[in-house]
Amino acid sequence: MALLEIRNLHAQVEGNKILRGIDLTVNAGEVHSIMGPNGSGKSTLAQVLAGKDSYEITEGEVLYNGKDLLDMEPDERAREGVFLAFQYPVEIPGVSTNYFLKAAVNAKRKHNGQEELDAVDFLELVKEKAALVELDSKLLNRAVNEDFSGGEKKRNEIFQMSVLDPTLAILDETDSGLDIDALKTVAHGVNSLRGPKRGMIVVTHYQRLLDYIVPDFVHVLLDGRIAKSGGKELALELEAKGYAWVHESPETAAAAS
């Protein structure tokens, strides 16, 4: 059974059709990259999978471990092992990352019938994972993302991902706004989470990230549909030829008709 199976997914917001029939299968152990120009629906797909309710699903289905993902509340999806690294992580004044993350970890453990972590065990886990993305653990006692730099916010996302240990990780433009050093650090964090039991969807606008997180598959999203799929070399081709090239290719023309 596939980890994630998206079939003919259509989604719209306020009458604007954004996803127009997405088909995608992600198996455990695979890393899929979704590329595409602005407005192609990349982030919408990521958010729909995480359960953002501002999108209306008009057609299609999504199976996660064989279960109807679209029927689950966002928090239920998270407890079942879906993780979205946000493109724009939200600032939450007044609550430290550690405080909220402990609540999240324990919500998930409880859901899985595991014992909740106490403060000591939790801090140990946090320390180890923070080191992985070179996140200053002092930041974790500060309000979530408040006054964090762009790089710190993204590292905080990958840090949370590693603490929550998801089965399906979706990274929504995690590379945007990062300088090359921060990008390498984030990629290192992501790579260390690759494994036979985990599936990943890496949404990005730029090929650059894929130099560091090498995907098994690359999909090009255009106008709400996957216009082209291929191996990691597709990303390089895109880099060289631009998205317009996909538009013009015969395959795409066939898909659009």
Binding site: D53, D75, R79, F86, F100, A103, A104, A107, H111
Partner: peptide
């Protein structure tokens, strides 16, 4: 947006 962020981490709507 913040509610969604917290729910996407596993907190229930009320907890968020």
């Amino acid at each position: 947006e913040a509610v969604f962020y917290l729910r996407a981490r596993g907190l229930s709507d009320t907890a968020a």
